[in-house]
Design a protein around this nucleic acid. Structure first.
Lengths: 104, 104
DNA sequence: TTTTCATATGAATATATTATCATATGTTCA
DNA sequence: TGAACATATGATAATATATTCATATGAAAA
């Protein structure tokens, strides 16, 4: 076994690689990626998201919480509903990268 | 529920989103991302990879198979050993995107 | 202030994923 | 040919993850 320094040589520590894996995990579930992609249009409330991606409210709420914990979306109350939006400029870039990949 | 066309409006079909999720899944596991990152250096055989990332041979072989099925790595025999290499130009780009993200 | 609407949450279940162990396969070299 | 080496693979067990169901919470409107 080599040590931690090996990772550093190329610029990423082991810890950072784990962080990266966690980031990509956010995009690796079909419900979550649909939610993120749905929010490309701009802010939407939970009901709208559910309709757009055809998933039930509870499942969507659970995943929104996961995405929020990962700081990829933010939310605010607006009257009776809660509106969500992308909270990270990289989301679109990362999905775009993946898009380029699968389109070849 | 809306239909498939909604996804198309923004350029990705539901099917493509599922493909994307599968792609990101490859980067979402710590063992796999370590393997991919290890291969940034160039070709390596299985034993070297195991040493570099400190995982046992069987686990590494299993994940190499997953990565190969996803066409992210390729392999060839070289004497007694099998050498693996990145098989996709996008791997580095995608990881680089993620890197930018976590570095902020 | 009670009812209704919108969302969140906990628990349970179902499913997927990963690592490990034992062993098989295939190659080289004595 | 057989021993040693390198890798792959199948089965199992451990763990993680997602969905569903029931219900709680909180805001608005009657």
């Amino acid at each position: 076994m080599r040590d931690r320094a090996d990772y550093m040589l190329k610029g990423l520590s082991e810890e950072e690689l784990l962080e990266l894996a966690d980031l990509f995990k956010m995009f690796s579930d079909s419900t979550r990626i649909k939610i993120l992609y749905d929010l490309f249009d701009g802010e939407k409330n939970v009901t709208e998201i559910c309709e757009d991606i055809d998933m039930n409210q509870s499942a969507v709420s659970h995943q929104l919480k996961v995405l929020k914990t990962a700081k990829l979306v933010r939310s605010r109350r607006e009257g009776k509903s809660i509106v969500y939006a992308l909270d990270d400029d990289h989301v679109k870039t990362i999905i775009a990268m993946g898009k380029e990949h699968i389109e070849e």
